[in-house]
Design a protein around this nucleic acid. Structure first.
Lengths: 345, 345
DNA sequence: AAAAATAATTGGAACGTTCCAACTTTGTCA
DNA sequence: TGACAAAGTTGGAACGTTCCAATTATTTTT
């Protein structure tokens, strides 16, 4: 029994046909007679045959390994886990398998992982890049004709497709909502200015502020780490501005939670004494106290969208870079003060 | 340029050596002279060579593909995402890559995914099985000599290794804690009696109850779906028992949250009028109101442990089934009433 | 300086599959 | 019935690598 794996020639022998016929059966060719096919299939299940995809796509000149690589920067973050699940859904049903890896924001790890994936002959790559990823990092992939789709974080200058949330519009919606509640001094808290996502969100902020007839004030923009700690720090600085803000749009939900913490530390109640809006709609946003008003992006839908785009490019053969922007929506909860009928000042 | 991929013979030609020598360089053999190695490596990076692992382990008689398959039942659940990250950490650093897939509790999906993984020649499988997985489902893998490690949910009767939390001890700790707060009537809420995890937790409950000199009362065991809704239902039934309980250990945190909801619906405040303890320590446990007292299992550590076990078995060649039980700890927060100095009746 | 030992290199076969062209069997039509 | 077409089957070459035994280059020993 333990004389190595069962191969097509074993099957062929046992079924009394040639290995070519077995191969034909394997690919569901209509050339082989019904009776023969049945016999072969029977022998196959009897001997416990398992297809060797490695051998197969060694032969197939034009690769197409049926593996697609998925790289995310932080699986621990529910946002990215949902994204991966969305990707998996469409990838699976298209008969591909995914090769998922986590980089934990490490660019070295990302490089390692991607090169390992290449060695395994992925036919496409979907990546939510680690911070500080260079556009050039994907050059070799693209040169080799492997379609690459970047998701969540866009990579300016890279000749790859991307699927990102409508960052500008999301922030703009948040600003307009706060304006409609009567706020005029609205801060923008957190985020690193040298990232594409920051730029996009800031742009939405500027546009909406101006469109509301408010003058843009650079002092109200307080960048910082996109974390809870960063939020605490940012709100602290924002409150020291003379003519202090009465509301803030935060870079993401983590910053927003930090801002709430910071407000409380100063005896101010978020949603009553100060309006806070986040971005992402993470799972805790709903159950936090006060529940966070935020911009919701559906990561699972984004994953599906990105996977579809990638599959399209794989089957098209050549990768025409394409940019998709997915819609976001404003979820009004308590932290903006809308629910208790409060308006600013 | 686009005349297909670069292979070892291309390298050999360009470097003026034979393909055998290039192969030797590839595997870091000490047989090749320093100068030659340098030359080969130089040409390799110049031509943009990428190693074809598929071809390689086609030749290597004893497989060892350097891929390990990881299957989880619900990636959306942070518990399992953390687990996967733990696995990834050790798998990566051992030079393997992981092939992660999500089954969403679908047994069909699980079967598909695993067979696809086999086709790709995984050298080991780590799986958190979907509900209703049969022990027999892993028979073929084991027969083919592929090590399998089951994690989180044990599979009684399967001849595979497993890494599970110390369920019995965890529940026992919870019971002892409640007893120390003065409770004597302690219910056990939620969970399906036909699962291994339920059996283990129940066993811990019984043991600790008896060890505390309390008589075991079957009526206090209220099974049900391991969900928030199940918790609401279970607490409702528990409160109708005559000589009603004053505290409950819940099958998991979801049930515990449901129990809290149910208590409030009856104008009872969890942590004051009734003590509730959960299991898992999910992320929301800390931030909920009241914060949930629960049994914490570290999923990332579990993932690491399981991966180590799997790698050990892969390198050992033969898989001697082994069972590992990982430690858990009691995290006292507010829902048990300990923090406000309350004790039962 | 020749023989022996060691270091470095090499060609060819093999892994399990698919593809191609060639072949055999069966069916159809005049 | 013979010629021809269609249906079904087949052996061998190829994919990119590793392994083995054999060969050649370099040292060491006598």
């Amino acid at each position: 029994m333990a004389k190595g794996r069962v191969t097509v020639v074993d099957i062929a022998e046992a079924a009394g046909v040639s290995k070519s016929t077995v191969s034909l059966v394997l690919q569901g060719s209509s050339l082989v007679k019904g009776a023969t096919r049945a016999k072969v299939l029977e022998v196959m299940s009897e001997l416990g045959y398992v297809y060797n995809r490695g051998a197969a796509n060694l032969r197939q000149t034009n690769a197409s390994s049926s593996i697609i690589g998925v790289v995310v920067n932080d699986l621990t973050n529910n946002f990215f886990a949902e994204l991966a699940v969305g990707v998996d859904m469409v990838v699976q049903s298209a008969g591909f398998v995914q090769f998922l890896s986590n980089t934990s924001e490490s660019i070295d790890r990302q490089r390692e992982v991607i090169s390992s994936m290449r060695e395994h002959g992925i036919s496409g790559l979907l990546v939510s890049p680690a911070r500080a990823t260079e556009a050039a990092d994907f050059k070799p992939l693209v040169a080799a004709g492997i379609p690459v789709v970047v998701v969540v974080r866009s990579l300016p200058g890279a000749k790859v497709s991307s699927v990102v949330a409508d960052n500008a519009n999301g922030v703009a919606m948040a600003v307009r909502h706060l304006v409609s509640l009567g706020h005029r001094r609205i801060a923008f808290l957190g985020g690193f200015p040298d990232t594409a996502v920051f730029d996009e969100r800031m742009q939405g902020y500027r546009t909406a502020i101006k469109a509301s007839g408010i003058e843009f004030d650079q002092k109200l923009v307080v960048p910082g780490p996109p974390s809870r700690a960063g939020g605490i720090d940012a709100i602290g600085r924002a409150l020291m501005i003379d003519d202090r803000p009465t509301a803030a749009v935060c870079f993401n939900d983590a910053v927003a939670f930090g801002a709430c913490d910071g407000l409380r530390a100063r005896r101010m109640e978020p949603g009553q004494d100060f309006a806070v809006v986040g971005f992402d709609d993470v799972i805790e946003a709903r159950s936090a106290v006060p529940a966070l008003t935020t911009i919701s992006v559906d990561p699972q839908a984004m994953g599906r969208r990105a996977a579809q785009l990638l599959l399209k490019q794989i089957s098209a053969g050549k990768a025409e870079p394409e940019s998709v922007v997915t819609a976001v929506r404003l979820v009004v909860r308590e932290s903006c003060g809308a629910k208790n009928g409060r308006t600013a000042a």
